[in-house]
Structure formats: C-alpha cells, structure tokens
Design a protein around this nucleic acid. Structure first.
Length: 437
DNA sequence: TCTGGGGTCCTTACGCCT
DNA sequence: TCTGAGGCGTAAGGACCC
C-alpha cells in the first residue's frame, strides 16, 4: 500500500485530500510513522522526529495513528490476496508476498501482469486506496519491484534481466542492508550492487561475516531461493513506552515496569500463548539501551510471575540519571498454558521441573493489576460522534476546548469545523467508519 | 524539542556437558 | 585423570524492517 497510514487518513477525511498529512507520535519525543506524498515534498519521511517534521512542514496535518482502521483495511486487502493463492506471507499491515504460481493464477509474464493489474483495481474498489505491485521470480526482486512501482504502479521484472537491472542500484536497496552495513561497505569502496557482485563471496564474508556476507553476495547475483511461507507464528510479545520526560523517581520506575508487565501479559493471553523468558528493556537519559532477561523454569501467562521477574531484573540496572524508555517482553513462546503444562508434568514425568517461585498454579485466572491513568481524552485524528452534528474527527484540543471537523469518508467536500468544551456531554469517542460504504 | 513501537535474526560470550 | 572439541542453552547487544 502506498503511504498507507497517511493515505487511509486522507480517504477518511476529505479535508485532507491533496494535503500534507503526517501520521505518527505527536508528543515531544514522537517520530513520523508515515508521511503523505504531499508531506514528503517538504522532506518529511518515516522515522523522522515529529518535531523536525513540524519545522519542515508546519502547515501539515499531524495525526495520531488509528490502528483499528488500518487493521480493518489490511484485512480486506489480505482477503483479496488470499483469493489469488493459498501462499500469502504478510510482512506488515500493508505489505505481503504472494506466490502466484502456487495459486495457479499466473504462468507467464503476461498472465502475471494481468493478475497484478486486476488486484490493484480490486484494492482500489474495495478500500479506496492505491497499492503497488512488484512481480518477479523471487521475494527480493518482487520487493524491489514494488518499491519502484510506488506510488500506484506495477513493475514486472522479466526473468533474465535481473542482474542488469540490479547492477547500477545502491546496495541499500537490498533487503538486510541498512545504514550500518551500507556505511561499512562504502568504506570498503562498495556502493552499488554491481560492485558487490564483483567483490566476490570471500571478500563479502570477510567484511560482513559468514551468514550475512554469503546472503548479500547471493542477492547481488539476483539469487534468492526463499519460499513464501504463510502463517508464521510470532516468537515474542513486548510492550514499551517512551516517556515525554525522563523518569528519575525509582518508585515510579517500578510502577511503570509493573504496568508494562501487565499490558504485555494481556497481549500474551489474548494470543492464547505463554512464554518462558522475560525481558526488561531500559533506555537511559543518554539513549543508551540495555536489556536484562531471565528464563523461567516453565512458560507462564501469569501477570504476577512476569511482574515479579521484571521487578527482579530492574534491580540489576542503575537508573540514576533518569530513564526515557521502559519495556517488558516475553519470548520463548509456547502454546501450552501453565495449567496444561503442569497437568502434563504431574501426570507422569519422572523429572518434572519444580514449580516456579512463587508457586504459579493458578486456581482462577489471576487478574491484571490496574494500569496507570489513561492518556489525554482528545487526540488529533480521533473519531468522535456529536449528538447533534454527527460523525467527525478531532482537529486539535487545548485550553479546555476541542475542535472537531464534521465530515465522513463518503463526503466529497470538506466538512464544517466547530469547537466545544472538552467535557461537552454531547461529544463522545467513536469507532472509525469504513473507508468505502 | 533529535532519535517510536513492534518485531526478527545474527553474533558473541560463557558455562556446562559429553 | 587430563585435555580438547563441539554442541547446547542462556544472556546481551546490535542491525534491520515496516
């Protein structure tokens, strides 16, 4: 999908169509998730601090992400992909690999192109948004093709033309070559994919290590044998928060870690899984990041167990000077719940692991501890419903007032703007409307 | 007012076991 | 009994991706 979050917001909000839109964190430490193409013209791009974006594009609309909307659009698109092939591998909400051969819908360049164009039309009709398609013989080339197809295009890489196409491109277009590896290679005098191929496998292995070097060399020759795999199971679950101001108070740090542990377990349980390794992440005032982890004797989904492990890990780290980020994660995921696991071990195993301390055998599902106070009520971009004026979205709020624009995805023209007291009884939060009726 | 949140994978180091 | 190689699990950090 092209500029996915920003495009979805423009589709939802007629007044933003054709305008610079920036979606991301809006706090003092926020970063840009997605900039509309109009905003990119000002130099705004993903991962840029929002503060910097505001300097470059002060008149753009700045919106919080609305993941429920993006997820529902994503599901619609994935459904269309599923109709093409049983082999669909989602990479994120807005990107997926599809094995057209396995779907039996394409057998040559012409039929693949036809399928791609029909898919783009279907995506547009179903979601109102544009997507780009890359067609090629491997994942790597399909991905490079789709990048070159953006926005709103299709690129087919003919078999046999791959190396010629890759040779002049920057090494940075290859998946797995980021800023660090890119710099590393540049210092070795390698900046294009052609130079990568010329350098040879031995040299790349020497520069980048065995796995990475060999992988990068293969890609430079357009060799990529990775299969499209559907339904990959997640391997970890984590939750983290960056605070607007560094936290210095150790008591407060402990409280935040406990709350994060509960949120993490909430998500773990929602996915019906349990985990064995608890990870605490701390980013200090100077942006140095460290992790501490502890592996339990058995997987757990008990909030108290995770909370206590995280608390123990916190005691291993020095937070004087302040912390800007805290995170709690669980990895080593298993499908067994603790109850099932203990039922198994007590049933017959000779060397059943001793129970965790504290004894984790839950009688009833333990309750999650209450979390911290919710964030401010009205966030830019948020959907609202007014008793008299109907559906709209929050343009901004402050000084006890909230400004709302009343318009829906189905309007052709921008809607009216009105301002209310933040606690106006007629105004309530609402769910996003579908982009297409 | 520099630098999010959710992930994956790889490398290195170390202790332990065979 | 000593020594070494190799495998494995664990821990920590870093690169990368969207």
């Amino acid at each position: 999908m092209d500029a996915f979050f920003a495009a979805a917001e423009q589709a939802a909000k007629p007044s933003l169509r054709g305008k610079a839109v920036v979606v991301g964190g809006l706090g003092p430490r926020g970063v840009v998730s997605t900039a509309s193409y109009e905003a990119r013209a000002f130099g705004v791009h993903s991962a840029m601090p929002t503060a910097q974006a505001r300097r470059l594009a002060p008149n753009a609309a700045y919106l919080f992400p609305r993941f429920t909307l993006y997820r529902s659009v994503s599901e619609q698109v994935m459904e269309l992909l599923g109709a093409l092939s049983p082999l669909v591998e989602p990479l994120s909400l807005d990107e997926a690999f599809v094995d057209l051969e396995a779907g039996g819908v394409a057998f040559d360049a012409a039929s693949a192109r036809a399928v791609g164009e029909r898919l783009r039309a279907d995506i547009k009709a179903r979601t109102g948004l544009t997507g780009s398609v890359g067609l090629a013989a491997s994942k790597m080339l399909a991905k490079i093709g789709s990048e070159r197809a953006k926005p709103d295009g299709l690129v087919l890489i003919e078999p046999g033309t791959e190396r010629e196409l890759l040779a002049p491109l920057s090494v940075r277009v290859l998946p797995g070559i980021g800023p660090a590896t890119g710099d590393h290679l540049r210092r070795a005098g390698i900046s294009t994919i052609g130079e990568l191929a010329e350098a040879g496998e031995d040299e790349l292995v020497r520069l980048l290590g065995k796995t990475h070097g060999a992988g990068v060399y293969a890609m430079s020759l357009a060799r990529d044998e990775r299969r499209v795999v559907a339904e990959r199971e997640g391997k970890s679950v984590s939750v983290e928060d960056t605070y607007d101001l560094d936290i210095h108070d150790r008591v407060r740090v402990r409280a935040e870690v406990a709350a994060l542990a509960d949120r993490c377990v909430g998500r773990l349980r929602a996915s019906g899984r349990s985990g064995r390794t608890v990870v605490l992440k701390v980013r200090r005032y100077d942006f140095s990041t460290l992790t501490r982890s502890e592996t339990l004797r058995a997987p757990t989904d008990d909030p108290a167990v995770v909370r206590e492990a995280a608390a123990r890990l916190l005691e291993l780290v020095d937070t004087t000077g302040g912390v800007r980020l805290l995170g709690v994660g669980v990895s080593g995921l298993a499908d067994f719940t603790q109850e099932v696991l203990f039922a198994r071990t007590t049933a017959g195993e000779e060397h059943a692991p001793p129970p965790l301390a504290p004894a984790p055998v839950p009688v009833a599902a333990p309750e999650l501890a209450p979390s911290l106070p919710p964030p401010p009520r009205w966030r830019p971009g948020q959907d609202v419903l007014h008793a008299a004026y109907g559906p709209g979205w929050v343009q901004g709020s402050g000084l006890g007032r909230v400004t709302v624009r009343f318009e829906t995805p189905y309007d052709e023209r921008p809607g009216r703007v009105r301002t209310f007291a933040v606690d106006d009884a007629d105004l309530s939060a609402a769910e996003p409307l579908p982009l297409v009726r």
